[in-house]
Computed example of a mutant assay.
Amino acid sequence: MTTGNPGRRSNEPASARGQRLDDFETERKRLVRLAYRMLGSIADAEDVVQDAWLRWSRVEGGIDQPAAYLTRIVTRLCLDRLKSARAQRETYIGPWLPDPLIEAVEAEETIADDLTVTLMLAMERLSPLERAAFLLHVVFDVTLTEVAATLGREPPAVRQLAARARKHIQAARPRYNVEAAEAERISRAFFAASREGDTRVLSTLLASEVEIHADGGGKVLAFRNVVRGMDRALRLFAGLRRKGRFSPILLRTATIDGLPGYVSIDRGGLLQTTALEIIEGRIAKIYIVRNPDKLAHLQTMREE
């Protein structure tokens, strides 16, 4: 991200400019993470943080609490963007999924939290203010007083927003932890079985009420509707194999927004990510991102 010095007064001491930049760089990774969790888009998150830098670089005088000030700027910019983002998602072709954040690839760019793909989708059902209150207060541990100042609401109102959001999110929160070795085993087994259309093995891996969400954004081939139930899932994978439409190459297993999964390339050279929600040893939900716009930040993985 560019962090130049647009529009600063020439008479501002170099030390002050340097301190301003240092303050911003100290917070930048956290700000990108916050914006991504608000918007579900890595590109939009980076744009928001760039806009925040432009505003920060023009602030006159010193700021006692740079972290709080920058958090406020980023949150308000995200709230503005959410208005248009929600309108766009109403006309989105097929299921919408957040951009996949690969922790193994971006370990230095993010700090792990427990917001999985499933929980990010649950946040989509919150109002923008509920989403902001939940993320700031519950996930990022910002005080209610500061959240209230950021959102322009009284603390009791913010407390209610956060409580309502927490209730919705808690219902979607995974109740089972999966050991890393088990997650790796299931991910690889699912990749191999789905690639071969092996319904016998798949029936031992999938939960009876499994769901398959595939995001192609109308730009590439993907399931237009959520596929629900083991029977339909088995028929789908068997049919894809029979028609010769499914022969991906595994690039690597990975943690994708807190869930185990993998990155692969299909026979047409299209990159895709697959995240798996595993409950009691069975795959309950499968999240596939194929929309090229959401995978641009992962293109270098082809060369690894």
Score class of each variant (00 low, 15 high):
residue 186 I to P: 00
residue 173 R to G: 09
residue 199 T to P: 09
residue 193 A to K: 13
residue 177 N to G: 14
residue 227 V to N: 01
residue 161 L to I: 07
residue 214 A to S: 15
residue 206 L to C: 02
residue 161 L to G: 01
residue 179 E to K: 12
residue 173 R to N: 10
residue 178 V to D: 01
residue 222 A to N: 09
residue 226 V to Y: 02
residue 205 L to F: 04
residue 221 L to Q: 15
residue 179 E to F: 05
residue 166 R to E: 08
residue 199 T to A: 15
residue 207 A to H: 10
residue 237 F to L: 05
residue 211 E to H: 04
residue 231 D to V: 06
residue 193 A to S: 15
residue 199 T to L: 07
residue 239 G to I: 13
residue 216 G to T: 09
residue 178 V to N: 00
residue 165 A to W: 09
residue 171 A to I: 11
residue 234 L to M: 06
residue 197 G to M: 12
residue 186 I to K: 04
residue 235 R to I: 05
residue 197 G to V: 09
residue 173 R to V: 08
residue 178 V to C: 04
residue 237 F to T: 01
residue 183 A to F: 09
residue 238 A to I: 02
residue 162 A to M: 13
residue 242 R to W: 02
residue 217 G to Y: 04
residue 215 D to S: 06
residue 199 T to N: 05
residue 240 L to N: 01
residue 235 R to Y: 01
residue 166 R to K: 06
residue 206 L to F: 03
residue 182 E to D: 13
residue 207 A to F: 04
residue 208 S to I: 07
residue 173 R to S: 11
residue 179 E to Y: 00
residue 174 P to H: 05
residue 224 R to L: 15
residue 189 A to I: 02
residue 181 A to C: 00
residue 202 L to N: 08
residue 214 A to T: 06
residue 172 A to W: 03
residue 209 E to Y: 05
residue 173 R to H: 09
residue 228 R to N: 10
residue 177 N to D: 11
residue 176 Y to M: 11
residue 227 V to G: 00
residue 172 A to C: 02
residue 189 A to W: 01
residue 231 D to Y: 03
residue 212 I to S: 04
residue 222 A to I: 02
residue 225 N to I: 01
residue 195 R to F: 02
residue 237 F to V: 06
residue 217 G to H: 08
residue 168 H to A: 14
residue 205 L to E: 07
residue 172 A to E: 09
residue 165 A to C: 03
residue 224 R to Y: 01
residue 239 G to T: 08
residue 218 G to P: 07
residue 181 A to H: 03
residue 223 F to I: 08
residue 168 H to W: 03
residue 170 Q to E: 10
residue 194 S to P: 11
residue 164 R to V: 01
residue 229 G to L: 09
residue 224 R to G: 04
residue 191 F to W: 15
residue 240 L to H: 04
residue 188 R to Q: 14
residue 234 L to I: 01
residue 192 A to L: 12
residue 188 R to K: 15
residue 240 L to Q: 02
residue 200 R to A: 15
residue 202 L to T: 07
residue 182 E to M: 04
residue 227 V to P: 00
residue 231 D to H: 14
residue 188 R to H: 10
residue 199 T to V: 13
residue 206 L to N: 03
residue 216 G to F: 10
residue 208 S to H: 12
residue 197 G to N: 05
residue 177 N to M: 03
residue 207 A to E: 14
residue 201 V to E: 12
residue 214 A to G: 03
residue 208 S to T: 11
residue 224 R to N: 14
residue 185 R to P: 02
residue 186 I to Y: 00
residue 239 G to L: 05
residue 174 P to M: 11
residue 242 R to H: 11
residue 237 F to I: 06
residue 193 A to Y: 14
residue 238 A to K: 05
residue 236 L to S: 01
residue 211 E to G: 00
residue 199 T to I: 14
residue 217 G to A: 10
residue 164 R to K: 09
residue 171 A to H: 06
residue 219 K to W: 14
residue 241 R to A: 12
residue 187 S to L: 07
residue 218 G to E: 06
residue 183 A to D: 01
residue 175 R to S: 10
residue 194 S to T: 12
residue 188 R to G: 14
residue 216 G to A: 08
residue 212 I to P: 00
residue 190 F to P: 03
residue 186 I to W: 03
residue 206 L to Q: 03
residue 225 N to W: 05
residue 173 R to K: 07
residue 221 L to R: 10
residue 211 E to I: 00
residue 172 A to I: 02
residue 192 A to P: 08
residue 198 D to N: 13
residue 198 D to T: 05
residue 191 F to M: 15
residue 234 L to P: 01
residue 219 K to N: 12
residue 211 E to P: 00
residue 176 Y to V: 13
residue 175 R to Q: 11
residue 230 M to L: 08
residue 227 V to W: 02
residue 176 Y to I: 10
